[in-house]
Design a protein around this nucleic acid. Structure first.
Lengths: 128, 128
DNA sequence: GATTACGTTGACGTTAACGTAAGGCAAGGA
DNA sequence: TCCTTGCCTTACGTTAACGTCAACGTAATC
């Protein structure tokens, strides 16, 4: 009975699609990241909200706090040219990228060390 | 008075070198990730502990829990060939790598969308 | 009209990884 | 002797992002 053709979702529609709980979605709203339409008591989500949720989850994957993602979302929502906000977001993206670079480094080293460890262990076994 | 030439560190030596608090170091010990020598009440850290701390912090950067890093450390400490533990660690590294790939993807998309947003905003400004 | 399914608003609980005192011991100057 | 410094233990506090009831409303269905 969902009207998904018209891009209207109930809260559990969204929860299913993004594999999160309705509790999480309501929480994001309480934190000011979502502001769905209401039909009486019930929340109605449109495509815009769908997009916003996508932003939220992408932010989470990058390790952003909800407060940080909120800034990004507000920027998009405003439709205005808030240069200061834009810079702030850009910096965050840059930080994330640098963090990623460091992590790639860490992964490489870890793999090398794991191999070395294996080699050592095997040598000890061979010598016994 | 630190005997760093002989690779002996006090707790605050380590804290300084890794830019963490002594509280954190003691906490890692209480979680079974470190087991420094004692001289009376005082903790004495050797090169081995230095290495372990490096592992801990690397794990943290990769988003590992302390419990996860503990497994890695135990594997190295044992010096044995625990194939099961080795596989578990290898899987974790693999997971981290996949997560990184997803994040790289996210970053790219985010940058593209930010540019698009800028373009839209500028067009609106130009039309007014 | 009773059940089932889905939605709502509180409100307290949970977890990891420390932070933050508080109080005390021991060594080394001044 | 007193003071400062550094380390120790114990123990309660903190934060983010929800989880988990509870208690209720409403709408469709059996």
């Amino acid at each position: 009975m969902n009207n998904e053709k018209n891009n209207i979702y109930t809260i559990s529609d969204l929860a299913q699609r993004f594999d999160i709980t309705t509790r999480a979605i309501r929480f994001y709203e309480s934190e000011g990241l979502l502001s769905p339409e209401r039909e009486g008591q019930k929340r109605l989500y449109h495509h815009k909200d769908f997009i916003t949720l996508k932003l939220i989850l992408r932010g989470k994957r990058l390790g952003w706090s909800l407060a940080e993602s909120r800034e990004l979302i507000q920027m998009y929502d405003s439709g205005k040219n808030n240069q200061q906000q834009y810079q702030k977001v850009l910096e965050k993206v840059q930080e994330s990228r640098e963090r990623l670079q460091q992590q790639l480094n860490d992964i490489e080293i870890m793999l090398v060390e794991l191999e070395e460890h294996e080699d050592r262990v095997k040598q000890v076994l061979a010598a016994s």
